[in-house]
Write a protein that binds this DNA or RNA. Structure first.
Length: 447
DNA sequence: TCTGGGGTCCTAGGACCC
DNA sequence: TCTGGGGTCCTAGGACCC
């Protein structure tokens, strides 16, 4: 049996912890650059605001309906997520943190009333952290996901599913007839792994509900769609096909990409941006103890400004010796930028991606074809080894300084020294405080 | 005027091998 | 006129997730 613990409207709930006046009001959290809505309170959903709706299209609801919009405060959400996850972990023996607001918990070997146990964990998260959650239980991860959907829907839209499923839904306790009723009430597009495209195609074939999907022929699914969808159908039928991943595998690629706050035309501005993205990506790379062998850079204009000339280009720089050194990665990235930059365009977005990642302990040295150096006396380390050690220590020091005194305390000169005055700096006009991770942002209590 | 960021997996097709 | 069989590896693109 698996449980899925999921924070309700997570980013909005995080903001409400420190600003209780937002409870009961329509609230959205906006993406970087205050671009579009990436989290909505129930009241905002009731206003008809869709996931991903551009802010400028819903801004009028500020005056008309009292809508509150906030800039994304990821430092706050990440910290509250950690706290929520540590309590959710107590539900069972093993936990997979699936996203910032969701975790699967393996309930194998847990005895007693699982619904009651889940309810207690839910209450503890609500009381200790302040985040409301829903918990779904099922015999496979896909069914636990479905159960979670049922729990959330029953809480928000009475009538779709039986009321007692609100907040906690244990599908494992249902008999066949009851389970079929739940499946029949669930549109196929709500199933984990069935997106918009596949949902449309299934609909054309008359498959509209989750129940229809469980009754489809497995061989046909595999042939007409893929092994991925076949696995989803099996899981829906109660056969586990996906394991819990309690130890997250190392990432296979690492990216840092941003849309700019203003259009960027000058190469020098792009160079600063690419330097920063490359250094951030390199930092993430070192955190997981990997090296990269390929650096990809892309730049592009805005596809939304259709009247302006469009340009989009990316290219890869292969590194002869895999590395996690910010200087080498930045040098490669800037070389790519030079090669793909075209003057005369208004650039809207750029990014750096590190590909072909490998464990740092695997060393690939250059084949040295130069003539052997005459005996210099003393054994000691070879030049290559000394360089590697120095470089590692330098990068460790860099990460430690920035970790302790804040991002950007020590940086490469090509990142520029203009700080927030840079042409491309993100727009974040509605930012809340970093209440839990920054001393100067602590909340004030007025007596 | 204003439209996010960061990932994963699978498949088809081409290049290449013997 | 007639042109095999069985592989691997890589890449681009599509689908999905939050």
């Amino acid at each position: 049996m698996y449980a899925l613990v999921d924070g309700n409207n997570f980013y909005v709930s995080c903001e409400r912890v420190f600003r209780p006046s937002l409870v009961g009001r329509p609230v959205v959290v906006l993406s970087n650059n205050d671009g579009c809505a990436i989290a909505r309170s129930n009241e905002a959903k009731a206003l008809g605001i869709k996931m991903g709706a551009p802010w400028f299209q819903i801004k009028h609801l500020e005056d008309e309906a009292g809508l509150v919009a906030l800039s994304a405060n990821f430092a706050l959400y990440g910290d509250l997520s950690d706290r929520m996850m540590s309590i959710a972990a107590g539900l069972g023996h093993r936990q997979e943190i699936y996203s910032i607001d969701e975790s699967f918990v393996d309930l194998t070997g847990i005895r007693g009333d699982l619904t009651e146990r889940s309810r207690k964990v839910r209450e503890r998260i609500l009381q200790w952290i302040g985040i409301p959650t829903c918990i779904g239980l099922g015999s496979t991860k896909t069914l636990a996901k479905l159960a979670n959907h049922v729990a959330k829907t029953a809480e928000r839209n009475p009538g779709v599913y039986p009321d007692h499923f609100a907040q906690i839904c244990h599908l494992g306790r249902l008999n066949k007839v009851e389970l079929d009723e739940v499946l029949a009430a669930t549109p196929v597009g709500e199933i984990w792994g069935v997106g918009r495209r596949i949902s449309e195609q299934l609909g054309e074939g008359g498959i509209r509900t989750a129940l229809d999907l469980t009754r489809i022929d497995l061989a046909t699914v595999k042939r007409r769609f893929s092994v991925v969808l076949e696995r989803t159908v099996r899981e829906l039928q109660g056969t586990p096909c996906m394991d819990l991943e309690d130890e997250p595998p190392a990432k296979q690629q690492i990216a840092c990409t941003r849309s700019f706050g203003h259009p960027v035309l000058q190469l020098v501005d792009l160079q600063e941006a690419i330097t920063e993205f490359a250094c951030r990506a390199a930092e993430k790379l070192r955190r997981q103890d990997s090296h990269t062998a390929q650096v990809l850079v892309f730049i592009r204009t805005s596809p939304f400004r259709a009247k302006e000339p469009q340009y989009s280009k990316s290219a890869v720089f292969p590194l002869l010796t895999p590395t996690s050194d910010s200087r080498e990665i930045t040098e490669a990235a800037l070389a790519v930028l030079d090669a793909i930059y075209q003057p005369g365009f208004s650039y809207a977005k750029a990014g750096v991606m590190l590909l072909d990642l490998q464990p740092a302990e695997r060393h690939q040295f250059m084949l040295d074809l130069s003539p052997p150096i005459e005996e210099q006396g003393g054994a000691g380390h070879s030049d290559v080894e000394v360089q590697t050690v120095d470089r590692t220590r330098l990068m460790t020091a860099l990460d430690q300084v920035n970790g302790r005194y804040g991002r950007g305390t020590m940086l490469l000169a090509s990142a520029g020294l203009r700080g927030p005055d840079r042409a491309w700096t993100m727009k974040q006009e509605r930012m809340t405080q970093q209440y839990t991770t920054c001393w100067s942002d602590l909340g004030l209590v007025r007596a």
